[in-house]
């Protein structure tokens, strides 16, 4: 199994800083992640941890004022070196995107079917052939009343249907990698379950590869093969979904897992983490979690902990494992 894994996307020491008054704000720092073909890799973290910046960096949709270093290798090609025109070709055909608020991404004056067929036409399909294909894609994403909905405008669709249009539009290009940034955050639970089952179907039936970006641990527990936990711009732990949930190693991951309300109050109070996710104008030398960490020691403030391997595939960055 291990030997057959084919690398699709590799982030190599990716750092992104945004200019702010008085200096640079470190949004993502020295992030290295590899995503293999056919897996769902979830990048999780609380707000401000930099996970969405990663999505925008990979699709090269950052504002342009940022300072970015490191490599983003897709099919072995460094996307950071591509021209704007070449990148246009990668977006859509190579990398498809689904974002949190589909209404922002849909054109209000075109029907849903037209928007999907327009995406298909980009690949040289005639207009006549594209529309029936759009309807077929609507069926693939289990759109109720697919023909009728193809003739609907975005404002006539519910939130769940709009997200289905986005997924259909993305599928129309048949991309190698799907980036889903909080794809279910604005949706009701029953609709969230429907969208997640579509994502899982894409993986299981089509072998789709997904970079899932979310703060929702339920969504991750339901879908992810591997998880990278981010905190304040850094990857602090990475492992299989089961390892992260059942054998978390980093203090932050451990505390988060115990902060999730899983039982009733009769079982005791929830674990809390003092303070909130900081943002760094002048990034500290040491571990970025050290000022909130109950196990923090001098070493944690002095320098960055190196990556340690708990077992193959499960790594974390912390000095204090013997204290925990």
């Amino acid at each position: 199994m291990e030997a057959t894994r084919e690398e699709l996307l590799r982030l190599d020491g990716l750092s992104v800083d945004y200019p702010v008054r008085g200096g640079w704000l470190s949004a993502v720092s020295d992030l290295s992640v590899t995503l293999y073909r056919g897996e769902i890799y979830a990048l999780v973290g609380e707000s401000g941890c930099g996970k969405s910046t990663v999505a925008y960096a990979v699709t090269r949709l950052l504002p342009g004022t940022e300072r970015m270093t490191g490599g983003i290798y897709f099919h072995g090609e460094d996307l950071t070196r591509l021209s704007r025109a070449r990148m246009e070709k990668v977006r859509g055909r190579g990398i498809g995107m689904v974002f949190q608020n589909p209404l922002d991404s849909l054109n209000p004056v075109y029907t849903a079917g037209r928007q999907v067929s327009e995406a298909i036409e980009l690949d040289g399909v005639s207009r006549q052939d594209a529309l029936p294909r759009a309807v077929r894609l609507f069926r693939d994403v289990r759109m109720p009343d697919a023909e009728k909905r193809a003739r609907s405008y975005p404002h006539e669709l519910s939130g769940g249907m709009r997200q289905r249009v986005m997924i259909a539009m993305m599928l129309g290009r048949d991309p190698d990698l799907l980036i889903a940034d909080e794809p279910t955050t604005a949706l009701d639970v029953s609709i969230e379950a429907q969208i997640l089952s579509i994502l899982l179907d894409l993986k299981n039936a089509r072998g789709a590869s997904v970079l899932l970006i979310t703060h929702n641990f339920g969504v991750v527990a339901e879908t992810a093969d591997r998880i990278g936990v981010m905190y304040a711009g850094e990857l602090i732990e990475e492992g299989s979904a089961r390892d992260i949930f059942n054998r978390p190693a980093h203090p932050y991951t451990r505390l988060l897992m115990r902060a999730l309300p899983r039982a009733s109050k009769a079982e005791g109070r929830l674990e809390t983490i003092d303070g909130s996710v900081p943002s760094f104008l002048n990034a500290p030398r040491g571990c970025r979690f050290s000022n909130r960490c109950p196990y923090s020691a001098d070493a944690c403030v002095a320098s960055k902990p190196p990556s340690r391997t708990l077992q193959p595939g499960h790594t974390y960055r912390c000095y204090r494992e013997e204290a925990i």
Partner: peptide, 26 residues
């Protein structure tokens, strides 16, 4: 019952194959 089934699990080991899904929209 449908709402509870739709609720994401809180641990990957509880993943169910072929979860019942409430069809349609509210």
């Amino acid at each position: 019952q449908g709402l509870l089934a739709a609720l994401p699990v809180m641990n990957p080991k509880d993943r169910a194959r072929d979860k019942p899904v409430i069809p349609g929209d509210p």
